[in-house]
Nucleic acid binder design. Structure first.
Lengths: 148, 148
DNA sequence: CCCAACTGGTTTCAATTGTAACTGCCGTCT
DNA sequence: AGACGGCAGTTACAATTGAAACCAGTTGGG
């Protein structure tokens, strides 16, 4: 009935969102200004870069992105010649996506940048804490369940 | 030069975003379906509920929300009779925002729900880990710097 | 074989967001 | 006083997103 004395900066979903936003900020500025990419676009690019070719559907599942977002991201990446689509023989509904050399090169630049930003982010934190952080986040995100 | 063997689910900004999204999901469904609120709206509501009346500007700073988002959220909350604005005597540019009784009651319901979702979220995790998680996120988000 | 139900992916349309320009009010310098 | 610059908050317009309808292509039961 009376105010339950709720303390906002202890609320995990809020904390996670704020931390996520703060953590993504610099990287976002990098891929936006340098390659004109949107969030969904670098995610698709990185999935193909990290895991090799796959269908749009698979990207949706792995990245927890809605199919319309992926559809548009793929269209944009194709327009910019970062990826190519190929019709699958066995099932003509499915398009196999893969990076072009240009896309591959861009992925390499971006992943190097990502590594730098991450290093900056965790500098000052004890490695133990970072390790634990990763494992907890992996569990909470459900990313540990997804088979690649 | 060659593929730096970047592993996406180890990349903290990505992990944080995925975890944040997963963690917010249920609570989001709750305030959306039950009160038709948007993200910015519950954030404004919670700031007023937790910290008492303040200006829109102050909400922007504390919540790291852009002023247009806050402006629209305030308009929506006012339309739904959750908050009231009052012109400040000293400086007529500033509007002091405060919850109506109805808004207060809604805040109480939502914060109770939030507490339940959070409990569900951390159940299974050792309290130590949760404590550490919070402190790391607090640092990374910059929320620990903001004076209230 | 054939049609209904389903699936991968796209498009359409409305709702949400971001950027930049705008309003009215305040403070200061002259 | 009065005018220039700055600030709180709003609005207009374009870009992004989400929900639902849509289009092939595929599958499975009769």
């Amino acid at each position: 009935m009376s105010a339950p004395n709720f303390h906002l900066p202890h609320f995990l979903p809020y904390l996670l969102n704020q931390a996520a936003e703060a953590a993504s900020h610099e990287f976002q500025a990098y891929y936006r200004t340098r390659y004109g990419m949107l969030r969904a676009e670098w995610r698709v690019l990185f999935h193909l870069g990290c895991y090799g070719e796959m269908s749009a559907k698979r990207v949706c599942e792995l990245a927890s992105l809605h199919k319309t977002k992926v559809s548009r991201a793929v269209a944009a990446l194709e327009r910019k010649r970062f990826l190519a689509r190929e019709e699958t023989e066995a099932d003509r509904r499915i398009e196999t996506l893969s990076l072009t050399p240009h896309g591959q090169q861009t992925f390499e630049d971006l992943s190097a940048a990502a590594a730098r930003f991450e290093a900056e982010l965790v500098q000052g934190l004890p490695p133990e804490e970072v390790k634990l952080l990763r494992s907890v986040l992996l569990k909470m995100s459900g990313l540990d369940q997804k088979r690649i």
